[in-house]
């Protein structure tokens, strides 16, 4: 039997098998994903290296011209920090909420969700009202006589952090919260009755069991902040542009190839960070036991 007809046969068998199992139900999903996610990603990857023939010029431009490397580095470092800060702030909030009565939990989660329904632009502008020269904080400080000239809080890196954390924090809280609700409520109890102080019960039982949620929440916040550009552009200073700003600018200028190269770098960097975080987390397993395992 010629090779190609054999291949055809096995393909046929494969299809028949697929149709006989209920696995075929995922086919539309896979097609949709391929069409809307994989294909555009491949297209971006290709257009970053094909520009009237195979070329490395876009990556060369990134590495040698302008301040792209610096912006890239800053975007990465900032996103990692935003991720860490959101988890550090969001985790205790989620912890607090999950230990309330069910009715209070619903109410508090609603409060957490409300800001998500508000446009990022509006929330960003709201920060201007708070942090501006004639904003609430400055006016209060002047009124209290603590300062006599308004402080520069707006259009600083600090303002970018404050605004981005405020925007992304609800997502961090939700991710932590949903992981915490999965934890069997009798486990911390069991730890306590077996002699663990509240801190040790948290450290050895609750924390390791909710670590997954904290990581998820870091990863989501990190990914989102890698792609942020409205907020840094509106509340940041001249050194606060993020890579997404540069991508948007190049799309406007029809520099598709270069924009694709930048987008690809952003994607790869994001994936690398996520993988590294995963690996570190797996090494973290030490936290998970009381050290008896060989």
């Amino acid at each position: 039997m010629p090779a190609h007809s054999f291949r055809l046969l096995s393909l046929g068998i494969g299809i028949v098998k697929l149709l006989r199992s209920s696995d075929w139900l995922i086919v539309p999903g896979v097609l949709l994903l391929a069409f809307f996610f994989v294909a555009p990603t491949v297209e971006i990857a290709l257009s970053s290296i094909f520009d009237e023939g195979l070329t490395g010029k876009h990556f060369e431009r990134f590495a040698t011209k302008g301040a792209y490397v610096e912006v890239f580095r800053r975007t990465l470092v900032r996103s990692v920090w935003i991720g860490i800060l959101c988890v550090l702030i969001g985790y205790p909030i989620a912890y607090f909420i999950v230990h309330r009565s069910l009715r209070t939990q619903v109410f508090l989660m609603l409060l957490i969700l409300v800001p998500l329904w508000t446009s990022i632009l509006i929330r960003t502008y709201a920060w201007m009202v708070v942090l501006g020269r004639e904003g609430i904080v400055n006016n209060a400080l002047i009124w209290l006589g603590l300062i006599d000239k308004p402080l520069r809080m707006m259009f600083t890196t600090g303002a970018v952090y404050v605004a981005m954390i405020q925007i992304l924090l609800p997502i961090a809280v939700i991710a932590c919260y949903s992981a915490m609700t999965e934890i069997d409520r009798t486990l911390p109890r069991a730890a306590k009755v077996l002699g663990a102080s509240p801190w040790k019960a948290f450290r050895h039982v609750f924390l390791p069991l909710s670590l997954e949620g904290a990581l998820t929440s870091f990863v989501i916040v990190f990914m989102l902040s890698m792609g942020f550009f409205i907020t840094p552009a509106l509340v940041g200073g001249r050194k606060d542009a993020m890579l997404a700003n540069v991508i948007a600018h190049n799309v406007e200028q029809l520099n598709w190839g270069f924009a694709s190269a930048l987008a690809l770098l952003l994607l790869v960097a994001t994936i690398i960070v996520i993988v590294v975080v995963r690996l570190l987390a797996n090494r973290f397993v030490g936290v998970r036991s009381v050290g008896m395992a060989p």
Binding site: D184, L187, L194, G195, K200, H204, L209, S289, G291, M292
Partner: peptide, 24 residues
């Protein structure tokens, strides 16, 4: 205490579970 649904710590080995009260 022994709970109805055992309440073993799912992230610890059997040995770690049993040693837990001692380590605490």
């Amino acid at each position: 205490m022994v709970f109805q649904h055992y309440s073993l710590f799912p992230h610890m080995s059997v040995l770690d579970n049993v040693a837990f009260p001692l380590r605490m």
